[in-house]
Structures are given as structure tokens and as C-alpha cells.
Amino acid sequence: MSDPLVQIHDLHFSRGDKKIFDGIDMEIRSGRITAVMGPSGTGKTTLLKLIGGQLKPDAGEIIVDGQNVHQLKRADLYRLRKKMGMLFQSGALLTDLSVFENIAYPLREHTNLNDALIRNMVLLKLQAVGLSAAHGLMPAELSGGMARRVALARALALDPMMIMYDEPFTGQDPISLGVLVKLIRETNQALKLTSILVSHDVAETLSIADDVKIISEGKVVADGTRDDIVQSESPWVRQFIDGEADGPVPFHYPGASIEQQLLQGVA
């Protein structure tokens, strides 16, 4: 059994009055692909931002590679981040730079490689996501799915030890979806990466994940290897994996019921 690369202890986090995490414990084991699933709005993106040190928890700690993320000095945090790649839900490409320059950016910032080497590396990364011919385009000229693939190439540019994917499959056609699934699995094996994969695409996610965590309403409701989850009898898990509206996981945003709201009339 491999060591945990990320350890989360008793994590609490709120946005205003809204509690997003209410005491979460989690371990992400190194060298594996861990899927984090849960209904929309439960805080999956928030969790990735907490791990990356962009948000501060109200209580609890997050330890990445033996370092407590939220007690690091700035310089150390930045050093740690060089080893973490993150693929944002929106892509987050720099809109004033071309696709090529976007991927070259982290290389230029953090390495002393010469231009010829950078060029080769960028083109290879783009080739891996099927977009080497698109290197001259600007981000505004890409479709949402293409932008996310470019962002993936950028996240891989520095060969990190760990990569966090926020919804990599959204907006991909079946072919690029297949390629992405394969790419994530292969990079994880070839580069001995640790991957955290946030996704709603149950079938694709389960096809590559080694471990699965399901979070709902601020708690981890299921945690185990893929096989544990697939065979689980738990109603939480079954509802999520089989995609049923009724069950313990609420589909509706918490608050007054629709009957109450309709009866109140127009405010």
C-alpha cells in the first residue's frame, strides 16, 4: 500500500454562513488516481483550491508531501506549487498569449531551458492532447473543450508530482474524451504522478480511478477503492453512481421547498 501524498484532517471551511466542509478527513495515496465525486455545488472545486493553498480552512489541516500547506511561508508554498499541476474548470488560460506561449509560460518562468528545447517540449505536450497544429491560435479562438485540453498540456508542462483535474471531461466529444481518459491514465503511470480527478462523468471516472471519494453536504459519504465503490450497497453511493434523483443525496439546493415558495407568491 502506497503512502498518502495528501492528508486532510478534520477540515472545516465556510463561505459566509454556508458551511461547505464540516470536518472532512481524507487521504490521497501517491501514484494513484483518486476520483472526488459529489453533487454540483458540494465544494469539489473548493477542495482543490484548499489543497493548492489558495483558500485557507477555518479549522483542520492539509498536508501535502509532508508539508502543512497553510503553515508554509510564501516561498515554500510557491516551491510546493511547482510540484502541483492544476487544471481549472474554466481552463484559466492567459488570454493575451497564444496557445504555444501559454504552455511555454511555466517553463520560461521556472526553468532556464533555451528556446529550442522549450519549443520541442511545448509541441510534444500539445501533441499529447491532439492540438500541436493549433499552437498559433489565441485562447479566444478555441472551443471550451479545446481550451481545457490546452490547459491540461500546460498543467503537465513542469512534470509535476501531482495533478488536480477539475472536470477535465466536460465539453469533450467522445473521441477526445477517450483520448483524455487514456492520457490521464498513461501520464499517471508513466510519470509516476498522483492524480486527483474531480468529475461528474461516472463511467469515465470509474474506468480510470483507483480510489473514489464521494462528498456530499460537507461530509465524505463514501471512501474506498474503485471496486469497493462499484460494489457498495450504500444508498448514497448507489444513488450517485446510478444517477437517481431520489435518495439520500439532495438534488435541490437546501432551503424552502418549492411548495412554500409558490405559496408565498411574488415577494
Binding site: K49, M86, P106
Partner: peptide
């Protein structure tokens, strides 16, 4: 707009201030 489109967050996660 760079903030709204997460470009600033993206830079931070690339360890660029």
C-alpha cells in the same frame, strides 16, 4: 476580467505571483 476568468488563480497555481 483576468480575476473573473481565473487567470490570476491559474498563475498562482503555476507558482507565479
Amino acid at each position: 476580467l483576468m480575476k473573473a476568468t481565473e487567470q490570476l488563480s491559474g498563475l498562482e497555481m503555476m507558482a507565479v505571483d
